[in-house]
């Protein structure tokens, strides 16, 4: 039984670590903002849940697990909400995906009324 839990938590934590690194690489390497959003959500959800689950398995039935679950639920709610809010704000200020299948050429460019100030550098 203990061995099973040990193996499970190892798997969870290794998986979580893998997902976090993958998402970070994605955030760094993906070509544009919209693609990076996807990469971010991998770390935000997949990596986070697996890591928390692994830690829960390690700590057993204690107050620590309760807190971990609270953190998990919390991040589970706020992470996607924040990502949604970022995407929404970007969309409203006029940013559109610039590359991808099925996009018409004129759609590639930002809308004409895109707020130039958002371009940071």
């Amino acid at each position: 039984m203990t061995l099973l839990i040990e193996i499970l938590s190892w798997a969870c934590i290794l998986g979580g670590s893998f997902f976090t690194v993958v998402s970070a690489v994605g955030i760094l390497r993906f070509p544009d903002f919209w693609a990076r959003l996807h990469a971010a959500s991998v770390g935000d959800s997949g990596g986070m849940i697996l890591l928390i689950a692994g830690m829960c398995l390690q700590s057993g039935l204690t107050l620590i697990t309760v807190k971990l679950i609270a953190i998990g639920i919390f991040l589970f709610i706020t992470g996607p909400t924040a990502t949604h809010a970022v995407a929404n704000a970007a969309l409203v200020t006029g940013w559109r995906p610039t590359s991808g299948e099925g996009l018409e050429p004129e759609e590639n460019a930002p809308y004409a009324d895109a707020d130039p100030s958002v371009h940071d550098e």
């Binding site: 709610i77 706020t78 949604h84 809010a85 929404n88």
Partner: peptide, 16 residues
Amino acid sequence: HHLILRVITKLLVGMI
């Protein structure tokens, strides 16, 4: 018009 934000915020404020 941020429906999602409003719902989540109502939920969170109590928790906070």
